[in-house]
Design a binder for these strands. Structure first.
Length: 1010
RNA sequence: GCGCGGUUAGCUCAGUGGUAGAGCACUACGUUGACAUCGUAGGGGUCACAAGUUCGAACCUUGUACCGCGCACCA
């Protein structure tokens, strides 16, 4: 006998173990010509990762697909694993070492990498265990890690091959430099954020004290300002970069500055006697309507300036160190500035030499970039070269009297500016000129775009392909080198003069080098490692053993479906497409299902700093309010400022209390999964609602109790039984078989179309609103009756239906359904069999029974209408009313006879009989052509019965009005499709009949009370 | 600025041209031997707004407003 509830806390892990032990999640590799393959590679979570709601959704959907396909008989591979997450992992381990006062640089590369591996073995991959708790049916025996030997071999081969083809190259360009990690990062790892900034305005004096007439005109050409100037006005948000200016640029056709183009001006910083002179040039880039229309060009520290500098052969002076402090190497400022002056005057220079020149004045050397900014602003202002403005200030004297004074202050605009941040480090990214490795992504993108255009790979929902195209069409070279220690070391070696030799091994590189440079040449391997995404891009085939030819690749590549979030389209999907097509000559997946973001109930992103993160495990296990608050405080990002942190903690406490006044109730994995699936409507984000999760937990309990009821009533199906659901006799049983087939078809159709929400809702409705609410209720009178044949058939049918339900529900709620399957083990020949390995229900048309559906629909409608009438009349729920059916057709008479017991029981009636005349003292419930006359005990409340009848009539009349309007419309009748018009006419007939019956009832009622 | 999405019941959301739906919440009644994590019945919506297409629009078109989210931006 089943308990009254499913205890997920006890059962889930046991069930998971059985699944895994049975090998049910392993694809079959041996049998020749085995079933069709279906494969999914997991989007590898970071090895540092901890399960969050996004993972929960992502993996629930993958698991639904995999379990479903497995049940459909496909040979399923769900390939799991993690990636090595270069920056994140290195950060975690560095932080750990820092706690012991150890620095990475002190211990050296090899020792550090060893430490990271140690950490990985101990604490890495926590997330894989959490995925198991989610029920993920991955083949864990095939788990891979991007730094595994085989996958590393793939990475090396891809690098070498692309290099040899010229698709990977080394280049000095402006990169996004993360000063915290002291590494380059790719464009995608930079988040641009709007912050409060300032814009300063400075005067760059013309060389030799020259002057010119500065003229401003309005739209009509009238002069609005005319003055003699000995300077050009420049605006900047980053004054510290002035030190590296190579030019001032104005718009090509800007008349205001035409007189001084080609002349030199002075950068107003640094020792006066060594002021640097830079040329005033023209370029298309400056916007004459913005600011003064003149832009300083710092090619080595700004992407736009970089392009201007490239076009105009302006030197790129680097000012900063890898930590974004001002450089302190090289010659003293005096000499550096002197050389820069020569360059400015001659316009001739050697880029190599430029690298060496440090133009940071001695007093700023070694300063952090922000300290340098302050110092520069101060110095310029002190010298009177800041553009000034007048402000009115209110000052108080000693007695508190206020007076207004005018003051001249530097003109500094408060301004929202876009600033780049490292997505991992959170620090401001510094554009820096460095040597890095690049993939020529544009060349690889072509085939990847075509594959989507031609439909070899399909995005679901389709509109994401637009996002994919947008990015691909404007793709930039992909910077793949990282100045880290944790990752795939770049297989490139440098000769004494920086010659580059790329090879799969050092020996290979060496032989190339020696061919060119002679035996015994000294080689040094590149210190850098590759971007983690470089290895992830190979995931769909590297996990299957590529570059070797393996049976896995044969069977499972290309994979069937990739399930992922839209935020990863660029990072991963696009790059897998490029590499897959390049190296496997085929797309990596046929379908890309892009799912939504999981937000909190108020539609906000879950964020540790807001403190609204919900841990999937907490939903599964439950979590008390205090623990939850504690956890959220712990995860909060701390500023180090105690006051601020305390305030943030309090905010989090309040949010949490509001969200979960009583903590999170334990709901189990199935409820969480079902919620996520049922909310996974295409093209819409998921606001996670606790109420819904609880609702789906209740759904599990409902199913559990239905099973319990079946068990109590000996609704059992033995393997040996030769039960054929399609030849049942009783209409009720025919009906439920027909409904079951419909539900199964609906769920199948929906999963195939990636409409997870529709699939979930179909099985939910069938289980609860059809099977539990009606079939089980309608069958009770049959089980209490004395027709043994009917009883036996009904028991088998109930057991069969329940069995179908757990099959269909299994992909969504794997644990509770498996538990119910297990409970039936004694009736099976194979006691060890598991639901996850059973076949997916597919009945075709043989189960359909329209007659049974019509008949049972009538029964349901009859019961519902009578119940409704009783409630309107406030008939006590327990009271059993005698009832007479009048005006019944032959068919209705027959049905009344057949379902007498059922209707009596469910509508709380007695003595259901058919008559020609209305007995006195009754109220009338109209069901189609017939009227059910209920004998209400005692005196009928005339008023309430009149009210009820009026309400009923009103309802029908309102509908009638709408239909009449349509049917009286010539256009409708002549233009609408025939079947629609016919339907309306039919409805009108029914409505007319209904109203007629109700009016009859009214007059009968009045007659009684006369 | 460009692109994508959203706006439907108190809340969370379904709904691809033919009488507006679900769950939760709410109201009333109810322990009838599967289930109170339940049952029965009920109340509640000008489908953001405007115009258009259509016999007919929540749905198609155009525009407006507001809210998200990407991408690119101006020194």
């Amino acid at each position: 006998m089943l308990d009254s509830h499913f205890d997920h806390s006890v059962s889930e892990s046991k069930i998971y173990d059985r699944w895994e032990k049975s090998g049910a999640f392993k694809p079959k590799m041996d049998t020749e010509g085995a079933a069709d393959a279906y494969s999914i590679v997991i989007p590898p979570p970071n090895v540092t990762g901890v399960l969050h709601m996004g993972h929960a959704l992502n993996n629930t959907l993958q698991d639904v697909l995999c379990r479903y396909q497995r049940m459909k008989g496909k040979n399923v591979l769900w390939q799991p694993g993690t990636d090595h997450a270069g920056i994140a992992t290195q950060m975690v381990v560095e932080r750990k070492l820092a706690a012991q006062q150890i620095k990475r640089t002190d211990m050296g590369r090899d020792a550090f990498v060893e430490k990271v591996w140690e950490w990985k073995e101990e604490s890495g991959g926590q997330i894989t265990n959490q995925l198991k708790r989610l029920g993920a049916s991955c083949d864990w025996s095939r788990e891979r890690f991007t730094l595994d030997e085989g996958l590393s071999k793939a990475v090396t081969k891809v690098f070498v091959d692309l290099y040899n083809e010229g698709l990977i190259y080394r280049d000095k360009r402006l990169v996004n430099w993360d000063p915290k990690f002291q590494s380059a990062i790719s464009d995608l790892e930079v988040e641009n954020e709007e912050v409060n900034g300032h814009m300063w305005h400075f005067k760059y004096p013309l060389a030799g004290g020259e002057t010119y007439t500065y003229v401003e005109k309005d739209e009509d050409g009238n002069i609005t300002l005319e003055e003699e100037r000995d300077y050009i006005s420049i605006a900047t948000t980053r004054p510290e970069t002035m030190l590296g200016d190579g030019a001032v640029a104005v718009y090509t056709k800007d008349e205001r500055y035409a007189p001084i183009v080609g002349k030199l001006c002075e950068i107003p910083v640094g020792p006066k006697e060594h002021r640097r002179l830079i040329p005033i040039i023209t370029d298309e880039y400056p916007d004459p309507d913005f600011g003064s229309g003149a832009v300083k060009i710092t090619g080595a520290h700004d992407p736009n300036d970089y392009m201007v500098a490239q076009r105009n052969n302006i030197p790129l002076y680097n000012l900063m160190t890898p930590t974004a402090a001002m450089r302190s190497d090289g010659l003293p400022y005096e000499q550096a500035a002197a050389r820069a002056k020569e360059i400015a005057e001659s316009g001739e220079f050697d880029p190599k030499e430029i690298e060496e020149i440090n133009l940071v004045p001695d007093e700023y050397r070694g300063l952090d970039r922000y300290d340098a900014r302050k110092a520069v602003v101060q110095a310029i202002t002190d010298e009177g070269l800041a553009v000034m403005t007048t402000v009115t200030k209110t000052v108080k004297d000693e007695d508190g009297n206020k007076t207004e004074v005018e003051e001249t202050v530097p003109y500094v605009e408060n301004k929202k500016i876009m600033q780049p941040f490292g997505d991992r480090s959170g620090v401001v990214i510094e554009p820096m000129l460095t040597d890095q490795w690049y993939v020529d992504a544009a060349k690889l993108a072509g085939p990847a775009v075509d594959a989507v255009k031609e439909g070899q790979t399909r995005f679901i929902p389709e509109n994401w392909s637009k996002t994919y195209y947008n990015w691909m069409d404007d793709i930039q070279p992909w910077c793949i080198s990282r100045q880290l220690w944790w990752g795939h070391r770049i297989p490139a070696w440098f000769g004494p003069e920086g010659e580059i030799f790329v090879g799969a091994t050092e020996a290979e590189a060496r032989s190339k080098a020696e061919e060119q440079l002679g035996a015994g040449v000294e080689l040094k391997q590149d210190e850098d490692v590759l971007d983690t995404w470089f290895s992830s891009a190979l995931w769909p085939f590297s996990t299957m053993g590529w570059p070797d030819k393996t049976p896995e690749l044969d069977k499972f590549y290309p994979t069937a479906t990739l399930v992922t979030g839209f935020d990863i389209i660029f990072f991963w999907v696009a790059r897998m497409m490029m590499q897959g097509l390049k190296f496997m000559d085929d797309v990596p997946f046929k379908d890309v299902y892009i799912h939504a973001l999981v937000l909190d109930e108020d539609g906000r992103k879950m964020s540790k700093s807001i403190g609204n993160v919900i841990d999937p495990i907490d939903i599964i296990e439950g979590c008390g309010l205090d623990t939850l608050i504690e956890k959220r405080h712990r995860d909060m990002k701390r500023t180090g400022d105690d006051k601020k942190d305390a305030k943030a903690e309090k905010a989090i406490t309040n949010t949490t209390k509001k969200q979960f006044p009583e903590g999170i109730p334990a709901c189990g994995t199935d409820a969480l999964r079902f919620t996520l699936a049922s909310q996974a409507a295409q093209g819409r984000d998921i606001r996670l609602s606790m109420d819904r999760i609880v609702g789906y937990r209740n759904f599990g309990t409902k199913l559990w109790n239905a099973a319990r009821f079946c068990q109590m009533n000996e609704c059992l199906l033995w393997d040996q039984d030769e039960f054929d659901p399609f030849s049942v006799e009783h209409t009720l049983n025919k009906w439920i078989v027909s409904e079951t087939a419909k539900a199964a078809a609906e769920v199948t159709k929906s999963i195939d179309a990636f409409r997870f929400n529709d699939a979930a809702s179909a099985i939910y409705k069938f289980t609860w609103n059809v099977f539990c609410d009606w079939y089980l209720e309608l069958m009770k009178p049959l089980l209490n009756g004395d027709d043994e044949t009917v009883k036996a058939e009904t028991r088998k049918t109930a057991a069969w239906t329940l069995n179908q339900i757990i099959h269909i529900l299994h992909p969504f709620m794997p644990f509770i359904t498996e538990a119910l399957w297990e409970d039936q083990a004694e009736f099976r020949l194979d006691k060890e069999s598991m639901l996850c390995a059973q076949s997916w229900p597919n009945f075709g048309d043989q189960a359909a029974s329209p007659e049974a559906e019509e008949e049972i629909d009538w029964v349901i409608k009859t019961i519902t209408d009578i119940r409704s009438g009783r409630a309107d009349l406030n008939v006590p729920a327990g009271a059993k009313l005698p009832v007479t059916v009048i005006n019944a057709s032959e068919q209705t008479k027959e049905r009344v006879k057949t379902y007498k017991g059922i209707i009596e029981r469910l509508a709380r009636l007695e003595d259901l009989n058919v008559s020609k005349s209305t007995p006195s003292g009754t109220v009338s419930i109209v069901v189609e052509e017939a009227t059910f006359a209920l004998e209400v005990a005692g005196v009928i409340d005339l008023a309430s019965e009149q009210e009820r009848l009026n309400k009923e009539i009103g309802k029908l009349e309102k509908e009638m009005e709408v239909i009449d309007k349509q049917l009286n419309n010539e256009n409708f009748v002549s233009r609408a499709p025939e079947h629609v018009v016919a339907e309306k006419k039919e409805t009108k007939k029914e409505l007319t009949l209904g109203i007629e019956k109700l009016r009859e009832a009214q007059s009968t009622l009045e007659a009684i009370f006369k």
